[in-house]
Design a protein around this nucleic acid. Structure first.
Lengths: 220, 220
DNA sequence: CACTATCGATAGTCATACTATCAGTATGCG
DNA sequence: CGCATACTGATAGTATGACTATCGATAGTG
């Protein structure tokens, strides 16, 4: 198919398609003449993957390019694909304090998680703990319960990946699972939080809004 | 204190501090003359909150402004603060398919979550399901297990908020918990995923590992 | 054989988040 | 007392990321 048809079927403008090929996210089509290039079904699928990673997953174009390159390279082992995907979600992290890193290690010990020192989740979680320390005092209880729940989630993740077929399918499942899994969990958490809030404070009744327009600008 | 001291203590440049006051994220200090303004400890704390939301939480400056306004307005009920914080994490979501929305509703029914139709988590989770459908076939098993784990997390979230003091503290805990909680969970998930991977594929025989949850690709 | 879609390359646009400069003050130190 | 210096709000400029528009050349179609 030509670029216009590819554009129609995916909802991505031809200009953006060209941009993605320039950036190496989408392989170029088969050149069939000076001004004609043939695209196939693989390009449609790839374009959908790109949009999922960028739009839903929040990856930058550059980060999406890296994980796609990892998927495409058959020389990269699955667990390395894992690591690349893990490092691709863009976050500016301030270096965490040693105390918070130790808290993360403590919960890892508690759950029997193998020590994986290079894992980007460790400084990420630790820096969040630093930020949370500003407002919350007792975090250890919450952290333990989070870790227990995450254990179940990670188990489900691995089962899902194992259910995939060959290496290429697994690699794609790994990437999609990591990147989109975070978003899916965030969505479910929003729903569960609201549901639990209502159950606890309103007896399961959905609230109306109660607004007292009480304005007290007191900045101190 | 003057702006230069505020800048030193928080690591935020004076130009950025001025920018945040212009954007309404940081209240202006007490004007004590034509060219002197006094900032207090509240400004230091607020600035740290702003940086946590923006840097760690990934909120835009505009989104951070909205949630901070919600925290500061004592007329806004806690569960409304909840909703504002939930809607503030910036995500471009493509309208989800009805089938995926129904899948989300099904898992809500399964877990006994109260129906909260306007909850932004529903279209968010559903659109992720659409994206995942490109590569994965059997999502229902994973979704159920995710929801079960999320139930525990939401319970922990509520306990943490309830442990806070007055309304202002709770409002801040709600916001910080929602925004930073997602990131903390993402970090823990990275660690657990890698640990479980090693345990399953590298660390020899896994003791309690059963295969009864083995997926058989049955598309619904 | 005119027409329109396509090609790669390049330059322009738009939004976000700062950052730098400016002119106009006040202090505070000698 | 006088001047250097830090501070003030306002405005304009910069850097980055993700497109998007235009261009001249050309080639398959009716």
């Amino acid at each position: 198919m030509r670029i216009s048809e590819l554009s129609e079927r995916t909802g991505v403008s031809t200009a953006s398609i060209k941009y993605y090929t320039r950036e190496g996210l989408l392989p170029v089509g088969e050149r069939t003449g000076y001004n004609s290039t043939a695209y196939g079904e693989a390009h449609v699928a790839r374009l959908r993957l790109i949009r999922a990673l960028i739009d839903t997953g929040g990856l930058t174009v550059a980060a999406a390019g890296r994980v796609i390159a990892a998927i495409d390279d058959p020389g990269i082992e699955l667990d390395h694909v894992f690591g690349i995907a893990q490092q691709s979600v863009p976050r500016e992290i301030t270096p965490p304090s040693a105390a918070s890193v130790e808290k993360v290690h403590a919960v890892m010990r508690e759950r029997g998680w193998a020590t994986v020192d290079k894992n980007p989740g460790i400084p990420l979680a630790a820096s969040v703990l630093d930020d949370l320390a500003v407002t919350r005092t007792d975090l250890s209880a919450v952290l333990s319960r989070y870790a227990e729940a995450i254990d179940m989630i990670a188990e489900a993740d691995l089962d899902a990946v194992a259910a995939s077929g060959d290496r290429d399918q697994m690699a794609e499942a790994v990437v999609v699972g990591i990147v989109l899994g975070d978003v899916l969990l965030a969505g479910l958490r929003r729903i569960a939080q609201e549901s639990h809030t209502h159950r606890r404070y309103r007896g399961g009744v959905v609230p109306g809004q109660t607004h007292e327009t009480n304005e007290t600008e007191e900045p101190t």
